[in-house]
């Protein structure tokens, strides 16, 4: 079945089976390989994207179940001119990433937090990110990045 949804502001379609996961739809159907898959038990969060503004783990959502909805992936997070958004820039400025594999999910989860709670405490950041596993950074610089981005939330966090 052909499924259409709005991805990063554009209507996009691909063929699906009932079992096609949103992560596969994005990666294989649309070629948006920035969304990564790091586990099969809905825990690592590398596949986190936004559906209608809410963070979801795209490896545990059926593509057909979100037909017609609005999806934002890491590829849609930069500013319209291509420069890094505030949250992305904060990750670079604070060395909040190393191998980069968990990073798309971290950025999407962090953006969701700041959208809901623009000035979180460090504790709130740590609790909010517990569904996103990073093996490289020890989270220290990720937390720093999110805190630093929260100081700049007068600007738009992402182009969504």
């Amino acid at each position: 079945m052909k499924v259409t949804m709005t991805v990063n502001g554009k209507a996009m379609s691909a063929e699906t089976e009932g079992r096609t996961l949103l992560s596969s739809f994005l990666r294989e159907g649309l070629g948006l390989t920035g969304t990564h898959v790091g586990c099969d038990t809905t825990q690592c969060g590398a596949c986190t994207v936004h559906v209608d503004g809410q963070p979801v783990k795209s490896c545990t959502v059926l593509a057909q179940d979100v037909a017609g909805k609005t999806v934002t992936t890491i590829e849609g997070m930069a500013n319209p001119d291509g420069s890094l958004s505030v949250i992305q820039q904060a990750f670079q400025d604070n060395h909040g990433l190393q191998c980069g594999f968990c990073t798309p999910g971290m950025v999407m989860a962090s953006a969701a937090l700041l959208a809901e709670n623009p000035h979180p405490t460090e504790d709130e950041v740590r609790h909010h990110l517990k569904g996103n596993i990073c093996r490289c950074t020890g989270y220290h610089n990720i937390v720093k990045a999110v805190m630093s981005a929260s100081g700049a939330t007068s600007q738009k966090l992402a182009a969504e």
């Binding site: 969060g45 986190t48 963070p55 979801v56 783990k57 969701a112 937090l113 909010h128 569904g131």
Partner: peptide, 9 residues
């Protein structure tokens, strides 16, 4: 329960 992404669904 779970984490924010799990709680969305």
């Amino acid at each position: 329960i779970g984490d924010p992404a799990v709680r969305s669904r």
